[in-house]
Design a protein around this nucleic acid. Structure first.
Lengths: 204, 204
DNA sequence: TCACACAATTGAACACTGTTCAATAAATTA
DNA sequence: TAATTTATTGAACAGTGTTCAATTGTGTGA
């Protein structure tokens, strides 16, 4: 039918991402159908490939939206709570995953088939979220050497992430979500306390 | 066609699992093809469904094999090293994942579509691995109340798991695998130290 | 105004997937 | 040997991502 001027390229991409993300959040990666997304916004599967080149490109755009929403969510929580920023961060991680579990896990489960890995603009979104955590850790453990912040941030994110995966899709137990969220926060506090103590010793 | 007595039902199931696991470990869940597995052992796709009823059943059997291999691997490492059992456990977790990354991650990524979750015999395999960890934690923190062991074991496994996921498929950074393995062990030591201190306080 | 060129859009075609099930071949029983 | 049971097959079905020649809408030049 060719409604060529119904939407600009940018509008069309936004339409695909919006509806695609809705689908991904609803049915999850395994049941996700690019064909169905195109049909729902009244375009053909061919147009989707025009805009995103490949399935990889489409899912990267959807995951990028997830990362963007997630970063905004974390920042909003940090801005509204000044009393315990570490708790806001950890609970924010869990809260976002609990609200959009299928979209959230897709960020981790979808691996780009292209050998060169994900593009720079996508890695920047990832770096943004790591940066949020690193910033708070730098505040929580001010005596830590700056070179030690980034590895510790990664390690703390890994810790929280492990708990969050089990809470959402507990292959390993039926432990309640709150137990694991509380456990994650307790672990983070212990780790930061240990880091502060170590940093104290190393400081000269 | 119709080599009905070439293999017993049990032998046939073993054949499917053996070749299926090989495939899973080689190409991963996304590229896995049940048809191809059947073809490779010289049977038809129909026979695979005869034995396992469904795709779910087949993948459950493959993941069960992974869990069994994993538990044996961990026990062997613990048996051969008496000096630092916690380190053996953490490094064992990483080593198995590094040796069979695709089969290992399939345990976490494949979610049974059937409501009601995985069957009891499968959950027993999971409980076995948790039990290995819980046993070592009980030794490492002997003053801990027995009711506190199991939640702590889950939390420690979650911690190690988070680090291991990032090491194998680091969506979040390019941190070397060794960095994350070392970090995981450091976190576990800090957490156990904290648990010992807390247990000491609570003890009466 | 009209024809031409350009580019967006389509959907059939392809090779694949899991799943089902009537037909078939082999073994067991009568 | 004849009848019955049962393991095994593979074509058929509905779905997937992917490609690409054909079509259609738009804008430009004469």
């Amino acid at each position: 039918m060719g409604r060529r001027s119904d939407h600009t390229r940018v509008e069309l991409e936004a339409l695909f991402v919006e509806e695609g993300w809705r689908q991904l959040a609803e049915v999850g990666l395994a049941q996700f159908s690019a064909r169905d997304v195109a049909k729902r916004i009244g375009y053909s599967i061919g147009s989707l490939y025009n805009v995103f080149q490949s399935y990889d490109g489409f899912l990267l755009a959807l995951n990028a939206r997830t990362l963007g929403l997630w970063a905004s969510d974390l920042r909003a929580r940090l801005a509204s709570d000044e009393t315990d920023r570490i708790a806001s961060l950890v609970r924010g991680y869990f809260a976002f995953a609990a609200e959009y579990p299928r979209a959230w896990i897709a960020v981790y489960e979808y691996r780009v088939s292209d050998a060169g890995g994900s593009p720079g603009w996508y890695q920047a979104l990832v770096a943004d979220i790591i940066g949020i955590a690193a910033g708070e850790i730098a505040v929580a453990a001010p005596n830590l050497a700056s070179a030690a912040i980034s590895p510790l941030a990664r390690s703390l994110i890994a810790t929280v992430h492990g708990h969050c995966v089990f809470a959402q899709f507990g292959t390993f137990d039926l432990a309640g979500e709150t137990e694991l969220a509380d456990a994650a926060l307790a672990r983070v506090r212990e780790i930061i306390a240990a880091a502060r103590a170590t940093g104290q010793m190393v400081r000269r």
